[in-house]
Write a protein that binds this DNA or RNA. Structure first.
Lengths: 230, 230
DNA sequence: AATGTTTTGTGTAATTTTTACACATGGAAT
DNA sequence: ATTCCATGTGTAAAAATTACACAAAACATT
């Protein structure tokens, strides 16, 4: 958008989007942050985000900023809240429409060799800029509630995964422990997992069974009124 | 806010709030709408709402507009989504931060003798302006999900109510039917209802037991990790 | 005034869901 | 070679959910 002058009869806040990017691997749940090189909050970390253009809606903006600032294209982006405290940005009145993105950390690269972007485990977050600590708390809460009713966990795992991986993911997000047998039974009974046969013959149990998420079946079941609950 | 000229280097959308007002009585769940007297969407109905001022956050704005346009002061106002489609308002680019308000319809008056405000049962909504039909759908979904985990139903009932009233409320919001005994057992077991003794001696069962919501007890239980689930 | 109808409160048995729990296998590490 | 560890698997006990019927008084009808 070209710089110029735009005049209105009443003052308007700036509108931005921010994107909390969740990733998951053997280290657990983490978020991708960008180090601020300039004031305010120079040296603090922040979520990628920026001004909404006049020809894009909020989600489009969040996806664009995400890619511009980290190189990531996220499959899953969802709005979870809008933050409008009067003094949330010292530079001026700004309203931000906050999103979270779920990315398959295992299947993306770059991202953390991009500029100052870096993954931080959820239990070890550095000082954040603006009201981003609050935004992160709300994002986590939203993700936790979401995963009870929607199969969003699979957006964070490789497309082929094992039952222990899936359990680790749920345990990381919900911050609880499950019994292995009960977790497995419950998951399998949902009918949304497909056993992946990659040709290898399994002997013993040490090498785990591979699964993929059966999106088609989930969609069908959902259309028939099935409601995932975990 | 005084009219004048406000100039920015980049174009900015307008930011508004809208408020879906839910009420409940023997007719079931309904929403309070305002008839538009001017184009666009003249004659259509809309949620109360308006431009966010520079010195107020979104919820403050929603409450202010609610009172200005309907005379209602709502106890419970909560943001549930922000709508930013590029063409959602033909007059220009506008982003709206949508809220729902829960009001004790039985304990307010006015409201529907205010100007063109009128309650409509949820099953009989007139044509709505802008994208307000979509906003209403999302609001209903948000309310339905909310009531599973938070005791928001009591915001819609008189402060003293009966078990059948409470059941009607849940049935209206969730659009399901419950068995009377099971519903009552479950509710009472939650430990958030206090039996109200209004002095009258009950003979027989035709005149129902009165209850009130025990907010203090709920807060205490919640602090101890109790999580309401219905 | 008598009669029928509606609203409400209440408990238990059957079913379903959730929880707790232990061992055998073979790969990995020593 | 030995030990250690990750994984897969089933069942019995406990808990939660569901289904279900009658009695009392208020209310409506005649």
């Amino acid at each position: 958008m070209a710089k110029g002058t735009y005049t209105y009869e009443y003052p308007r806040p700036s509108v931005t989007t921010d994107c909390v990017i969740f990733g998951f691997d053997t280290e657990g749940l983490s978020v991708l942050l960008i180090e601020r090189g300039i004031e305010p909050f120079k040296g603090c970390w922040a979520f990628p985000g920026g001004f909404m253009q006049m020809d894009e809606d909020a989600e489009t903006c969040a996806r664009r900023e995400l890619e511009e600032e980290t190189g990531l294209k996220a499959d899953y982006v969802e709005q979870f809240g809008t933050f409008s405290d009067v003094n949330r940005d010292p530079r001026g009145r700004t309203v931000t429409i906050a999103h979270y993105a779920l990315v398959k950390k295992s299947e993306v690269k770059g991202a953390d060799d991009a500029a100052q972007a870096k993954w931080f485990p959820i239990g070890n977050i550095p000082p954040l800029a603006f009201d981003h600590d609050r935004i992160l708390r709300v994002a986590l809460k939203a993700l936790r509630e979401k995963i009870h009713f929607e199969p969003v966990g699979f957006e964070l795992l490789p497309s082929v995964f094992t039952m222990p991986q899936l359990q680790d993911l749920y345990e990381s997000i919900l911050d609880v422990k499950f019994d292995r047998r009960n977790f497995s039974n419950k998951m399998l009974k949902l009918g949304i997992l497909t056993e992946v046969n990659d040709g290898t013959i399994r002997k013993g149990t040490r090498n785990p069974i591979k699964y993929s998420f059966n999106q088609d079946n989930y969609n069908q079941m959902k259309a028939k009124g099935f409601r995932l609950e975990f």
